[in-house]
Nucleic acid binder design. Structure first.
Length: 577
RNA sequence: CGGGGCGUGGCUCAGCCUGGUAGAGCGCUGCGUUCGGGACGCAGAGGUCGGAGGUUCAAAUCCUCUCGCCCCGACCA
């Protein structure tokens, strides 16, 4: 490809709406052009990169015997009602819905569990056909609350979604392991520094789940990891060993104290000269279920925090949020800051974190404005709460197992693998005949990779002040042969010759024959970020060119043969195991 | 949806407070000089100031509504 024939529209200045480096660079280099918020047109160069990412995904999935197919974007409401997700997705507002001319409701697919489960039900009839793993690479649509950071969180984005069907849990474990292997190879080949971390299964549901995270400061997710033990988890999911609390000792008689305007843990520490770890705060949540709403009180040790994702999972609710001041007054009969287990109305469900199990002589609120209680003991002064782990793990705490300390890093979620089990197949009555001739629901897994997000994550991890530094495997071109002065015949001829020889070697090269002065040409190519450059300039008459690696921008003069050899050497990627 | 901010040539922005001739830099076109790190000269093209309504002799500027976009919090590949 001659760059003079390729539509390249780089910008001299950063677009005003780009915040993080990868978004800024992709927009400035003209790789992406915004069509609407969270909706982008991919330029010809960007499309080359996206196709390369997609092809790596295909290669590695196919190696694990997955099969590519294509499902519809437009999906009928009745299909989504068969899994029970229509109402929830519409209520959450994340799904685009529309009506056809007859008034029939449809949606633009945000994901394809329903379609694939119906397809599997229609086509897989016997256990002899299992396992099956099906995937597609397609645009997905989500009415994101806040699209941002370019391709990182778009309303329309390219995603690979795969679905495995097995006869039993052991089969699912194998399918899941195969996908995990494939994912590791995919992100390795894309040149990313990444890790698999334990994850919350979220709205999709199911048991086991891991996220593949590209480590980057701009990442939207917080990860806790421990290098000593190898433990890594999304903070939503992470566990840790809580710091020890002082022993409360044998139960002493409860004491009620006047605490005017003392509402927070910090204030209580000062007022009673007690450590936060000897207190229990009581936080009220408004919890939404499919058919009802409730106020739930959650007790947590004073020095620790509540993990709302864990809490929502324990409560098995649709959504929860901190109760409003009005709700708190209504539920406890006291002002905000004085809620506690003592005298809590029976209709308010009471949970407590595991760290409070067996605790004695706690300092708590007692649902009376201006008062707190000392020496509160469960079962004696108040109900015995339901104990659950609802604690937020934090950096600095010990990792599960106690091998080392947790540190926090940021990550971009580029992939997610789930063990779904029979959640969808049971709901939709999608079955196969078992060896005993009985209908059994498929045991399913589902797996996603954000293809467009992965491409941007690669830029987030690979750039410098001058521009993008594409990992070779996903660069729009691996090598650019830059002819500095296309008006000089010997430069043009030599450039063309090098370009041809690189192409013959199977290298994805392009020829920059654009009539640009050298300064702008160098700047432009650095911004665009091709990993290797062969510069044909004043040495052309003597057969001398320059080889330059974008990553370090070091230039070396050498002969044409040497330059070509350098390119070949650099691009003979070590085989991925 | 809540809170904050912004819509002025292709891009980045000034002008708005205090109403009266629509501006700059970059980019683009032509000619000339230049030519290894975002050159220079000359000549040009390009804007219903997001949209609608209102106030006024007069609105980019003041008021109302509306649409779009960005940022901060709850969703997710």
């Amino acid at each position: 490809m001659q760059l003079s024939r390729l539509l390249i529209a780089t910008l001299r200045e950063d677009p005003a709406d780009a915040e993080i480096p990868s978004h800024r660079l992709l927009a400035r280099a003209g790789y992406i052009v915004k069509t609407a918020a969270g909706i982008y047109t991919y330029s010809p160069l960007m499309w080359r990169t996206l196709k390369k990412v997609a092809q790596i995904v295909r290669d590695e999935l196919d190696r694990e015997s997955a099969q590519e197919l294509m499902m519809p974007i437009l999906q009928p409401r009745e299909l989504w009602e068969s899994s029970g997700r229509w109402e929830r997705y519409v209520a959450d507002g994340i799904m685009y819905t529309l009506k056809d001319r007859k008034g029939t409701d449809l949606c633009l697919g945000p994901t394809h569990e329903e379609v694939i489960t119906a397809f599997a039900d229609a086509t897989i009839t016997s256990y002899k056909q299992l396992p099956v793993n099906l995937y597609q690479i397609q645009d997905k649509f989500r009415d994101e609350i806040r699209p941002r950071f370019g391709l990182m969180r778009g309303r329309e984005f390219i995603m690979m979604d795969a679905y495995s069907f097995d006869a039993d849990a052991a089969g699912l474990d194998e399918s899941y392991a195969a996908m995990s292997r494939a994912y590791h190879r995919i992100f390795e080949r894309c040149g990313l520094e990444f890790g698999a971390v334990q994850a919350d299964a979220g709205a999709i549901g199911g048991s086991g789940s891991e996220e593949f995270m590209v480590f980057a400061d701009a990442g939207e997710d917080a990860i806790l990891r421990c290098s000593a033990s190898g433990y890594a988890a999304n903070v939503e999911r992470a566990d840790s060993i809580a710091p020890a609390a002082p022993s409360g000792g044998d139960p002493r008689p409860i004491e009620k104290h006047e605490t005017p305007d003392i509402r927070t843990v910090e204030q209580l520490e000062g007022f009673f000269s007690m450590p936060a770890a000897a207190m229990a705060k009581t936080v009220l949540y408004e919890v939404k279920y499919a058919e009802s709403e409730a106020v739930v009180a959650v007790m947590m040790r004073g020095d620790l925090a509540i993990n709302e994702v864990k809490l929502a999972n324990r409560l098995d609710c649709l959504a929860l949020e901190l109760a409003s001041d009005d709700k708190i007054r209504q539920a406890t009969g006291a002002e905000v800051g004085f809620a506690g287990p003592v005298g809590l109305p029976e209709e308010v469900r009471l949970l407590a974190d595991e760290t409070l199990r067996g605790a004695t002589n706690l300092l708590t609120g007692c649902n009376e404005t201006g008062y707190h209680c000392l020496n509160v003991n469960f079962g004696r002064d108040c109900r015995e709460p339901e104990f659950h782990d609802v604690r937020l793990a934090r950096a600095g705490e010990s990792a599960p197992g106690g091998a080392g300390e947790l540190e926090e890093v940021r990550g971009i979620e580029v992939g997610h693998i789930f063990k779904l089990g029979t959640k969808y197949s049971s709901a939709m009555d999608a079955t196969f005949s078992s060896q005993q001739g009985k209908p059994e629901p498929f045991v399913m897994g589902c797996y996603g990779i954000g293809v467009s997000r992965t491409a941007q994550a690669a830029v987030e991890q690979n750039h410098d002040e001058a521009g993008i530094i594409w990992p070779p495997a996903i660069a729009p071109f691996e090598v650019v042969v830059a002819v500095l002065d296309p008006k000089k015949d010997e430069q043009t001829a030599l450039g063309q010759q090098i370009y041809d020889r690189l192409r013959e070697s199977g290298i994805d090269a392009c020829l920059d024959d654009r009539k640009l002065r050298p300064g702008p040409k160098f700047k432009d190519l650095e911004l665009l970020g091709f990993p290797f450059q062969v510069t044909v300039g004043r040495g052309a008459a003597d057969g001398v060119v320059e080889f330059c690696e974008r990553r370090n921008r070091e230039k070396q003069e050498m002969s044409v043969d040497e330059a070509i050899a350098k390119c070949r050497e650099a691009l003979t990627a070590p085989a991925v195991s």
